[in-house]
Design a protein around this nucleic acid. Structure first.
Lengths: 195, 195
DNA sequence: TGACATTATTAACAGTGTTAATATTTTAAT
DNA sequence: ATTAAAATATTAACACTGTTAATAATGTCA
C-alpha cells in the first residue's frame, strides 16, 4: 500500500513519522510497528532504510544538532558586536532553542544518558562547546572576562547553560521564577562571576 | 526454590537485585524476568510485592532521595559556620554525592525525564530545593549575598549545581578540566556573581 | 485437624525488536 | 519489447518483553 507516484524520499518520511511519534509518546512507547503503521508500510521495510530503532534516533539527533549550525557560524563571524555580547547572544540562542522545543531537547539528552554520544556517532554535539570556547577566548583577549584557563571558563558557562535547559525542560511543573528573568539573571550572574 | 529459612524481607531482596541490574545494564535492558532469575524467583512473584516495573523504580528513587536526608538536616542545623560556608558545604555535598554514584544519579534523572516526578510520587526530590532556598535566605540576611529575590538566587544556584552533576555523570568521556577544580570554580563563580 | 490467608508458580496474551525467505516493482541493457 | 538485475517491499517467524488469571503450595492459628 505504498504511494510512489512521485519519487519520494522514504528515509525522510520514516524519520518525520518517527520524530512526531517520539515527541508525542516518548522513545520507549513508540515501536517500529507503530512508525510503520503511521506511514502505511510494513514494519520490516524500515530496516531497509535504517539498521534498527537506535539508528533512527541517531539520525534524528544528527539532524537536530546540524539544523542550527548556520546560526552558530553567524555569531562566530559577527564583528559588529563586542565579544561579550556575542558570547551572551550565543548562550541565549542555545537556551531559547531548547525551550522552544523542549520535547526534542529532552529526547536528545535522554539519548546521551543511555548511550555514550561518541559511540552514537554524533559529532555535532561537541561542536557547541568548541564555539563556546572560541567566544570565551575572544572575551578574555578583549579583557571583557578575567585572565585564566579558557577551558575552565567555557565549561563553567556550559554547565550553567545546560543546567538551565535541562531543568526547565525536564521539570516544567516546578514553580520557576519568571523564565526570561531566570535565564537573564543566570547568565548575568555567571558572566559577572567570571569577570 | 525459595529460601525462607529465616524471615527474609523479599521486598528488599527484589529491590537490591533490581538496583544492581539497573546500574549494570540500564533500565530498559533489565526485564522483570532477569530480576526474578537473579534471586531465583518466578517473574510473577515480583508482582506480589511491586505492582509493576515502574513501581520498583519508584521505590528505588524514594530510597535514594531519603538516604541522605539526615546529612542535609545536619547542615541546616549547623550554627558554627558562617551561612555562606553552610551554603557551599551543602552544594558540594550534593555534587559529590552525585559524582560518587554517577550510575544512580543518571538513573534518577532518567526517571524524571520520562515521567513527571510528582506523578511518580517522589516528594523528597523537591526537598533539596527547599533547603537550598533556606540556606540562601540566611546568606542574604547575613549580608553575604546581595539583596533580592530569594527564589531567583536559589534557582540560579540549583541550575548551576544540577548542570554540573548532569554533564559530569552523563558525559564522562568529555575532556573536562580537573574535576575538583571545575566544581570549586563553578561554585565560586556563581557565588561571586550573586554577591 | 481444618480453615484461611499468604506466598509462589505455571500458562497465557498481546506486544516488542529483529532476521530470513520471498515476493513485487523499478531500472537498465539487449 | 524482452529479459536480467537491482531495488524495494512484504509475510512469517524467533526470542523476548510487561503483565494478568488461574492454580498450586505453604504457613498460621483456631
Amino acid at each position: 500500500m505504498n504511494n510512489n507516484s512521485d519519487k519520494v524520499d522514504v528515509k525522510k518520511i520514516i524519520l518525520d513519522a518517527a520524530k512526531e511519534l517520539f515527541l508525542e509518546q516518548g522513545i520507549s512507547s513508540v515501536s517500529m510497528r507503530k512508525i510503520a503503521n503511521k506511514i502505511n508500510y510494513s514494519p520490516t521495510t524500515l530496516y531497509i532504510y535504517y539498521s534498527n530503532k537506535n539508528d533512527i534516533l541517531k539520525h534524528l539527533a544528527k539532524d537536530y544538532f546540524s539544523e542550527y549550525a548556520q546560526g552558530y557560524e553567524d555569531i562566530l563571524a559577527n564583528t559588529e558586536n563586542s565579544s561579550i555580547d556575542n558570547l551572551i547572544t550565543f548562550i541565549k540562542l542555545y537556551i531559547h532553542r531548547a525551550l522552544a522545543n523542549p520535547g526534542m531537547y529532552k529526547l536528545m539528552t535522554t539519548l546521551f544518558a543511555e548511550t555514550d554520544s561518541t559511540h552514537l556517532g554524533i559529532t555535532n554535539a561537541g561542536k557547541g562547546y568548541e564555539i563556546l570556547k572560541t567566544l570565551t577566548s575572544r572575551c578574555i583577549i578583549d579583557k571583557e572576562l578575567s585572565e585564566g584557563d579558557v577551558d575552565l571558563k567555557a565549561q563553567i558557562l556550559w554547565v550553567n547553560t545546560h543546567g538551565l535547559c535541562s531543568l526547565l525542560t525536564k521539570r516544567p511543573s516546578f514553580h520557576w521564577s519568571e523564565i526570561e528573568l531566570l535565564v537573564d539573571s543566570s547568565i548575568n550572574t555567571v558572566i559577572k562571576g567570571l569577570k
